[in-house]
Design a protein around this nucleic acid. Structure first.
Lengths: 246, 246
DNA sequence: ACTTTCGAACACATAGATTGTTCGATATGG
DNA sequence: CCATATCGAACAATCTATGTGTTCGAAAGT
């Protein structure tokens, strides 16, 4: 609630948030401290301010808690598309994080490209095999980037790449906010036989900064019913198999 | 208590453990289940059996909780020997895990060689820079091994390597239980200007299976007062600086 | 100097984990 | 095949950890 209120109005005072939520001012202060520590907003005396600059990616901690149900269903579908025994490279992002949770324990070999997914899979039981890619974690999201990541990807081949994205459209293809992130995604799909994009509908039709791959190169797209109809059909025309979850 | 009782006598019944600890049999059963899931002991009908085979490394979950206080003090000394701004490669093992905790937040660049240490440093605040090495985690300890790890180490250079060990003696040098582990340690020290061994006294004088490096190549050895006097002085004769914590 | 905001300290409430008991199901030995 | 011991699921009781609200002195802003 606090994050939404601050993000929508640009700023809010402690007193406003207290009356909005029904909580005490002390609790609001404590929550603001954790939110600012997680990079969701900026703390100022008397309240808090949104720190979303134009064109920037919303903070990971914010995205992590919105649309959880949809992401879970998309994750389930993706997990179902992955057969036992496959080797999978798993992109960074919240949707792929959900996939990581569902692959845990399955007899598959997984290389996750974010610290978060790595943590989820770190104590995976026996049949799951984990491969750690090298790299440097980027900000709160923990997306692994840099030469070590590229080298790790270049050294291996995978059955399936599960890609998240920041934007996807028939015209501009799959795009990301970060250049280095885009480079990693490119390397991942270059090492994989099958490319599987997983994203909630809100990203479809959008275009982010860095181009990764034209939509036609995606073998399968898993998304939800919130995706704009025309974009989806245009993408499907390019030969991409559509999987739309309820 | 349960782990110690089973390890010392080789086996124990549920009833014995219940009277020993004062807990109910049901609780003992539950604890035995978790302990066996963590690979500390083997569950058998009516009780549990130790699974320490001759020459094998004790399970990680067991070592993690013994001598914590000593390891913490060794870790503190090691952390004090590392200057701000250094680049450090951090070996696997419980002692190095403690070092990871203490480096968290310090202005240093760290590449941990185990999943455990990685998890500790995953959410390290700003001044700490984390580099993830590639590799495959080995068993419960999460030590990263294999070609990806070796390649990551070969691609970088570090100021300091902090090495744990399974055995260290003046005659046989620093040794490890696992061959692949030993290969990683070798690669780590080959990429580092300064080599810093950190281990509790119980390992000194012991020799494990795989040779890593002669004792003379170690620049500094941090250990505790429990280390055998003659071995320590012999190692110091080779030019290694001794740091013995209280 | 005055007001507002902040944060530490304590008491309280609540959710989650641990524990112990009971009892039917299951395995072991003769 | 039976008698006995052991096991595990289910529930209630208990403990612990986390979050919340209040108070009050300190700090920041006007």
């Amino acid at each position: 609630m606090i994050a939404e209120a601050v993000a929508s109005s640009g700023s809010a005072t402690v007193a406003e948030l207290a009356s909005l939520t029904g909580a005490s001012e002390m609790t609001i202060r404590r929550d603001l401290d954790t939110l600012s520590a997680h990079g969701v907003l900026e703390r100022v005396r008397g309240g808090a301010r949104a720190l979303l600059l134009r064109g920037e990616e919303p903070p990971f901690a914010l995205r992590a808690h919105e649309g959880t149900e949809v992401k879970r269903r998309i994750g389930e579908r993706v997990a179902a598309l992955i057969a036992d025994g496959e080797t999978v490279v798993l992109d960074s992002g919240t949707t792929c994080l959900e996939v990581a949770r569902l692959l845990k324990g399955r007899p598959v070999t997984v290389m996750p490209l974010s610290l978060q997914a790595l943590q989820v899979l770190a104590d995976a039981p026996a049949p799951t095999r984990l491969i750690v890619p090298g790299g440097q974690p980027r900000a709160a999201e923990g997306a692994l980037i840099g030469p070590l990541t590229l080298a790790s990807l270049a050294a291996l081949r995978f059955d399936t790449a599960v890609l998240g994205c920041c934007g996807l459209s028939a015209a501009d293809g799959l795009t990301a906010y970060d250049l280095e992130d885009a480079a990693v995604k490119k390397a991942a799909l270059a090492s994989s036989r099958r490319i599987l994009a997983a994203t909630d509908g809100s990203k479809i039709g959008h275009t982010a900064h860095a181009h990764v791959v034209p939509a036609g190169r995606l073998h399968t797209l898993v998304t939800d019913a919130g995706a704009p109809e025309d974009e989806i059909t245009a993408i499907a025309k390019g030969g991409t198999v559509l999987e739309v979850v309820a």
